[in-house]
Design a protein around this nucleic acid. Structure first.
Lengths: 334, 334
DNA sequence: CCAAGCTATTGAACCTTTTGGATAAAAAAA
DNA sequence: TTTTTTTATCCAAAAGGTTCAATAGCTTGG
């Protein structure tokens, strides 16, 4: 591993000059510039990340935390964050916070150890973590798609409450009365908001008695048990609204396995509009989040905070959209 | 940001002792241990990552490069790598190498700058990168699911050639003669192997004239143009074999949009057995890769290399499996 | 009671880079 | 030519840890 010192020696200059060549090339004369450049290319010198960031206090890195690698929803977000990050000179790395495999200590280390210049959270912080970092503030954080109310962090998202209410209103307007809400990721504030929006819509329609809330999750297994519960419920829902598309697709699959026709016997609505939502049979009615815009904006705000602007409590709410496809219809008259 | 010096001062000990408390607690007496512990918890001290790794030459980090966040196939791999990494004391971060957004310089920086203790590549290295690092060797690398032959790196994978040949043989055995191969990710050596296996099977069956090779990709858009090409081909295939499930699902969707019945008018086989493969209509025949085993083994080997063992050219080939579902059948007699 | 052997702690060197102040060399002004 | 200004380079001090060799304080054995 070549060091800056070796490069300096080989080029016959001081290490300060090499460093300048790397960071402020215009401050070094043409002649030396060439000498240094030659040595650097032939030694394949790359400055040590740790030394660089120890000295400068900058890592050039943004860590994005998502609940699960391979969840189609985060595709667009990551891509737009990545793109925007590049224009600001940052590199992004993704951390999976799957099923509490990412623990308190991991969070604290990430936040307090200057491992990155900024953090984008696409997950809600577990209670324990919130408690632990309540007063203190290390690495700047912005939340995307999520938000927590007891410990506010700047965030960019849609109005999950309103979106869920609209979706539920749509089902009600179609004539459904007995409707189930099947939740998504545990521990997601967005999911809680969605559930609240659902309940609100049911209440306003005077259907509170006929609502059913089922704990879903994010795997096929979760969908299976949720569907089971859905089908054996005495309320006999004619429609179900899922906390995310992943869950909705699982439910669709399970309903088919149980010979329940969608939408005739059961309408299904998802949330997120992932790319698979239009590839199911029937295609999935869902709510679309402007994920690329969320990503771009999140990165912009994070970058401003890193540059010293105070954006605490800053909240940006973008527009969602109900996408009507084939999985919803008026309930079959029985 | 508290530093080790501040902790030392507050606890009335030297920084060496604090460091020892952190890394070799058994070398420090009970009394001092308590003093230091108290100060650390109340100052919320977390050692600086960069200082630590600058001095020790270790980062405790493994970077995993995958083609795309949100590709369901990498789910299991990342989870198993993560789990195994944890037992070895490493933390993993994921880098998306999407569509050449991750360039030569990014690769070189990652490999040469000691940013991580090891790298797991779930993508093939672009030619330019291979050329650039041919002789030199920085951070240890192991490939998972992929391999490149001109510049061999230790790798863990299935026999993609054989798997593809088997899948094709299966179609032939069902009675298909005019078969298309629709490729997956560009630049994937695994995909090239699959195509070769397909061609071999067709040749051995004397069907080389009746084969069709279409450049697919990894997005719905790619699937759309590939399906278009598939349908207007003079060869009129009765079966198509896709380089990955993502593509196969897209093709399934496009065929449906064109009113082509699967499997009656067209059999479809995918590759990877992602979780959505059993949720499509019809469910997807595909080849399953033992992705969790691949992940675990890859991490084991990487860890050994980091510890100094020589595993260059080490190749581990695990068993794949053809999973027959509803998307394949004998061709309709016409 | 003293030499020898432990144990717990410390001081200082070191890892690699950035950067501000000092210096030398070159160019411009007097 | 001498003085001033500008430009290019260098020296050395950080940055926050780890670790080795040295030291101080105790205990043990003879």
């Amino acid at each position: 591993m070549t060091t800056i010192k070796e490069v300096a020696d080989l080029a016959g200059v001081s290490i300060a000059t090499v460093s300048r060549f790397l960071n402020n090339p215009d401050l070094v004369s043409n002649k030396t510039r060439q000498k240094v450049e030659k040595v650097i290319t032939q030694t394949k010198f790359v400055p040590s990340t740790s030394a660089k960031s120890l000295r400068s206090g900058k890592t050039g890195l943004i860590i994005v935390v998502i609940p699960r690698i391979g969840d189609a929803f985060y595709d667009g977000i990551i891509q737009s964050i990545s793109k925007q990050a590049k224009t600001k000179g940052y590199n992004i790395l993704v951390k999976e916070a799957l099923f509490s495999s990412f623990e308190l200590d991991d969070y604290l280390a990430m936040i307090n150890s200057k491992q990155a210049d900024g953090i984008i959270l696409c997950v809600s912080l577990p209670q324990k973590v919130r408690d632990a970092i309540k007063s203190y503030h290390g690495t700047p954080i912005v939340m995307a798609c999520e938000a927590n109310d007891d410990f506010p962090l700047p965030n960019v998202r849609i109005d999950n409450f309103l979106a869920a209410k609209e979706a539920t209103d749509y089902l009600i307007q179609l004539g459904h009365q007995r409707i189930a809400y099947i939740s998504g990721y545990d521990n997601s504030s967005a999911d809680k908001q969605r559930e609240a929006g659902f309940s609100q819509a049911m209440m306003e329609a005077g259907l509170s008695e006929k609502k059913l809330i089922i704990r879903g999750g994010s795997t096929l297994e979760d969908a299976r048990t949720a569907t089971e519960e859905l089908l054996k419920s005495p309320i006999k829902p004619t429609a179900s609204f899922c906390g995310n598309d992943e869950m909705a697709i699982g439910v669709l699959h399970e309903l088919k396995a149980n010979n329940i026709q969608v939408p005739d016997d059961m309408s299904v609505i998802g949330f997120d509009n992932i790319r698979y939502a239009e590839m199911t049979t029937p295609t999935l009615t869902t709510i679309s989040q402007p994920n690329r815009d969320i990503g771009t904006l999140t990165m912009d705000i994070l970058s401003e905070i890193i540059d010293g602007l105070d954006k605490s409590n800053h909240t940006e709410v973008l527009a969602h959209k109900l996408i009507i496809r084939q999985s919803t219809s008026t309930p079959r008259v029985s």
